[in-house]
Design a protein around this nucleic acid. Sequence first.
DNA 1: GTGCCTGCAAAGACTTTGCAGCACT
DNA 2: AGTGCTGCAAAGTCTTTGCAGGCAC
Lengths: 132, 132
Amino acid sequence: MSIKTTKQRDRILEVIRDAHGHLTADEVYQTLKQEDTSIGVATVYRNLKFLYENKIINRIQHPDFGYVYDANLDRHYHFHCDVCNRMYDIDDLYQANLNTLIEKEFGGKIHSHMTFFKGICPDCLKKEKDKH
Amino acid sequence: MSIKTTKQRDRILEVIRDAHGHLTADEVYQTLKQEDTSIGVATVYRNLKFLYENKIINRIQHPDFGYVYDANLDRHYHFHCDVCNRMYDIDDLYQANLNTLIEKEFGGKIHSHMTFFKGICPDCLKKEKDKH
DNA sequence: GTGCCTGCAAAGACTTTGCAGCACT
DNA sequence: AGTGCTGCAAAGTCTTTGCAGGCAC
């Protein structure tokens, strides 16, 4: 089996890259459906799975929306604002040493970790302060 | 609105506590369905949601399996073995200072974080070594 | 007795699969 | 030319909801 490039697959990848964020499968579909060359839902799902399995995109569990897809392959964290429900990337703060620590204390072999923060984002925090 | 205790709600909680682990909604249902006093799926889902919202049990997002429920309310991490697919608790290693670090670097207010490790558990690592 | 809770079944949201035809290499 | 990919629709999985009756307080 060899990998083929197709219009649809390319467009799906572009949409995720352009979003600079985290899209659900449905959001990708909704975006592409409106284009001149339409697309089928199945194609979106099949390709997201394909791109994820081939490590071309990343897949994260969102607390409320299920899986979201992300073109940022660097190890990074995620933050979810409990007030506005937006999701943010937290770059450059991956604690690689945490893997080593857990390996030492827990045993086994750690390949990676993903962490998800919850709280109030800078925007919402500012708005709350301004109210008082 | 006041909280009532019912046979079903109590049993659901017991099952999760007895499991000392991480059960999906369906696993809870499958366990209870076989008892003398059967139970409806809707009751399981409604009560898991209820127990979680009242902070009586914990709900974790497994990167691959969706939500799993946990009676351990202490802040702790989770580990998933890529070989045997078991899920482990990692106790006593919660990095509270990570919240402070992110607050300082990213801004906003961090309430908590959850982290999920992936790798090979001590058991499977040992087995692999023994093979060679 | 009142109001929350339960079971059932139907509906809902999301994702996967079978199939015939199409497109990329 | 051949194999993998697409679109459609149907099916599958998981979870929620409406409703009538039941149970806890």
